[in-house]
């Protein structure tokens, strides 16, 4: 179901940070719950075409998390980090891709209540260097391109 709520990503050239914003047609408590309930979290976080395995998940201050994205070929991509704050007003965690160890970002997410039982989410990610940030975006792009090709495959099959 397509949504009218658009994601914006802001990453100024030469900076170590990026911002992601998105609004939801749901009250803040539910959006928050979808971030801390492991059964809900696994349903939406993994990229399309990947199995999402949530190995450790302790969404409280000082808690740890680790999850693995597994593709159809069996390749596994692990991510882990620590939670520093876990409330609707402020979710703060570190984030590290295990394929690129030692490069950690700090992700801060704020959920803002909007009129009409709606919610605005803002993610602010700060990286250790501009190269780390650009690498992260580039990596996302490669996945996007792969998915684009998958869609192209589907279209070609329909001929």
């Amino acid at each position: 179901m397509p949504s009218n709520n658009k994601v914006t990503v802001t990453a100024e050239p030469g900076k170590q940070e990026l911002f992601i914003t998105r609004e939801f047609d749901a009250p803040r408590e539910l959006v928050f719950k979808a971030h801390i309930d492991p059964k809900l979290y696994v349903q939406w976080l993994g990229p399309h075409g990947y199995e999402m395995i949530l190995e450790t998940f302790e969404p409280v201050s000082g808690g740890k998390y680790r999850y693995v994205h597994k593709d159809k070929e069996g390749n596994e991509y692990g991510f882990h980090g620590t939670f520093h704050a876990m409330s609707p007003e402020s979710m703060i965690q570190t984030f590290e891709f295990e394929g690129y160890p030692g490069h950690v970002s700090l992700d801060c997410m704020v959920l803002e209540e909007l009129p009409g039982n709606r919610t605005k989410a803002t993610i602010h990610s700060v990286f250790q260097s501009v190269a780390d940030r650009d690498g992260m975006i580039q990596n996302g792009m490669e996945k996007g391109v792969t998915e684009g090709y998958e869609r192209l495959d589907d279209i070609l099959k329909s001929f």
Partner: peptide
């Protein structure tokens, strides 16, 4: 992120 959040919409 759009794909991710569209799935979250359905859950919500």
């Amino acid at each position: 992120w759009e794909q991710r959040f569209n799935r979250l919409d359905e859950i919500l």
